[in-house]
Design a protein around this nucleic acid. Structure first.
Length: 372
DNA sequence: TCTGGGGTCCTAGGACCC
DNA sequence: TCTGGGGTCCTAGGACCC
């Protein structure tokens, strides 16, 4: 019998902050939400005021004026995340990380060694709490999706076991919105068609298969097209194209360096422009030859920006993304080869400087009008 | 001082090719 | 001289996830 344990950390960023500063325990705490940002994690005390993650900061401050707002520290959370997954891997060689705070442990076949999976699941949650100080919830079931739904249903600090054979009994009465992939929009569409519960969805063979396919389990490594991007919401909206190009230069530098770090080269460059009225456009171009160099990416990005920018309209966000990433060897002509070699050397140097003196040490397109 | 940033996946039209 | 059709690539937008 297959057994999957889905582990979901409870308000992960807040919990990490509490480990590092125990005075935050028991209080309404929110990570993020400064300026134009959104709350990335809210403690359950803060949620009682109606605060949710992904809520704009101004709204959270209005709902919970006496709450404690903590700036996020990505690197610290990643480090804790790594420790959680290291611990999970001591229980099973088959552990999949879905995100920084969610993972799946395949407990199939561990019974003889460790006892019933329900015991193992309890032990895992206990040890995450004892050894790392972090609360988490778990869902144990015969299918990964079911395990995830179960974990979400018992949050926080719970463990829910869906015994084999009781799957439909468990799922049936639940709202369709518990299904991963059914967001606000799909939820509304389903409800409009008279489908509110999972049972009603499953009674509809085509829709049931589309949104909740439990027959086809645990897909392996899928051939997703991966992408590397960076975007930023400006502290103040901009109308000046030159200033926007400077921002874009910084984003390109970040993206290209990450691309090189993973030894990838991208074939498509996409620029994202969000105006102050939130209207958002993306413009992309596919290259003849993939690249990982700042100059190449910046050239395309600048063109896409200047060609598509509505003059005078304030811009609140700029983004760049690269996709169609390949890690295969270079395939260029003997002529391109020399140029590429010299760029390679140049960027090795730039990356070294950045590692040594920080990301801002070398910034493309930022030479003029620096304020310091 | 009104709505983040990192992504993946899907759809749909048009170009282009055989 | 009243319109095939299938496959693939490119592009834009949008839903959704954490």
């Amino acid at each position: 019998m297959p057994f999957y344990l889905h582990i979901d950390m409870d308000s992960f960023y807040v919990s990490v902050e509490r480990v590092l500063d125990p005075s935050l325990v028991g209080k309404p705490v929110m990570v993020g939400g400064a300026g134009r940002g959104v709350v990335t994690s809210a403690s359950y005390e803060a949620r009682q005021f109606g605060v949710r993650s992904a809520m704009p900061g101004f709204q959270a401050r209005r709902l919970c004026p006496d709450g404690i707002f903590v700036p996020g520290r990505r690197g610290v959370y990643s480090e804790f995340s790594r420790k959680v997954f290291d611990l999970l891997r001591t229980f099973s060689p088959d552990v999949r990380a879905f995100s920084i705070d969610e993972g799946l442990v395949n407990l199939t076949g561990t019974e003889r060694l460790m006892g019933h999976p329900i015991r193992t699941a309890n032990e895992i949650i206990d040890r995450i709490r004892e050894e790392l100080g972090l609360p988490s919830s778990g869902g144990l079931a015969t299918h990964p999706t079911l395990a995830k739904i179960a974990a979400t249903a018992v949050k926080p600090r719970g463990l829910l076991y869906v015994p084999p054979g009781s799957e439909e009994r468990f799922l049936g009465p639940l709202d369709v919105s518990v299904i991963p992939g059914v967001g606000p929009k799909t939820h509304r569409e389903l409800v409009d068609r008279g489908i509110a519960t999972v049972a009603q969805l499953l009674a509809h063979p085509r829709l049931g298969r589309r949104y909740l396919n439990l027959e086809r389990p645990a897909e392996g490594g899928r051939a997703h097209e991966h992408s590397v991007g960076s975007e930023t919401t400006l502290a103040q909206s901009l109308t000046d194209a030159a200033a926007m190009e400077r921002v874009l230069g910084g984003l390109v530098g970040d993206v290209a360096a990450r691309l090189r770090r993973q030894e990838g080269r991208a074939r498509r460059v996409t620029v994202k422009i969000r105006y102050s009225d939130f209207k958002t456009i993306t413009r992309s171009r596919t290259l003849k030859a993939p690249t990982c160099f700042d100059v190449d990416i910046f050239k395309i990005a600048r063109e896409l920006l200047t060609r598509n920018l509505a003059p005078g309209r304030p811009v609140r966000l700029l983004g760049i993304s690269t996709s169609g990433i390949t890690t295969e060897g270079w395939q260029d002509s003997i002529f391109d080869y020399r140029e590429r070699e010299s760029k390679d050397r140049l960027y090795k140097g730039i990356d070294t400087l950045r590692n040594k003196y920080g990301e801002r040490a070398v910034t493309l397109g930022a030479g003029k009008n620096r304020s310091h």
